[in-house]
């Protein structure tokens, strides 16, 4: 992919993100309006969120056409697979811990994170994972909290 097509994709992506943000702020403003902006005793629960959403929307609106000027910003992250992998590992930890318990989930996340960060010494990863998992569990048990 050429540099210019990369940039053009990036501009499209950012504009799409800004458009989504604009729609989001419009949605929040609508919900805030629904909550009640003002009554006879003063501002209602929707007053401040409404003002904030309008303010945010205006900033986004101003940023939407202006983005082309600052398109030299390098937004697309490098190592996307590793980043997505890390997010997936954390999500897996949250899903699996209730089923497999803290030690197994912690051991797993330590090994996976180390691997994603470029570690290839399996013995070091296993020892670190075991040490962290059992160490933290012992610490919490000592403090009277279960994980």
């Amino acid at each position: 992919m050429t540099e210019s097509s990369k940039r053009s994709r990036q501009v499209t992506f950012v504009r799409f993100a800004l458009a989504v943000a604009l729609a989001g702020t419009a949605g929040i403003a609508w919900m805030s309006f629904d909550l009640g902006i003002w009554d006879q005793s003063g501002p209602g629960p929707g007053f401040l969120p409404f003002v904030e959403a309008i303010g945010l929307g205006l900033i986004v609106l101003a940023g939407l056409p202006a983005y082309r000027a600052s398109s030299d910003l390098l937004l697309m992250p490098a190592n996307v697979t590793s980043i997505l992998g890390q997010a997936a590992v954390v999500a897996a930890f949250a899903i699996l811990m209730p089923y497999f318990g803290f030690v197994a989930a912690a051991w797993g996340i330590v090994i996976a994170t180390a691997w994603l960060n470029g570690e290839r010494n399996w013995l070091a990863m296993l020892l670190l994972g075991g040490g962290c998992a059992f160490g933290i569990q012992y610490l919490f048990a000592m403090l009277g909290t279960t994980l």
């Binding site: 890390q86 930890f93 912690a106 996340i109 994170t113 180390a114 960060n117 670190l128 962290c132 933290i136």
Partner: peptide, 12 residues
């Protein structure tokens, strides 16, 4: 690469 997992685990 060995510090990162500790940070992640501590955070979680």
């Amino acid at each position: 690469s060995l510090l990162a997992p500790v940070i992640v685990l501590f955070t979680l």
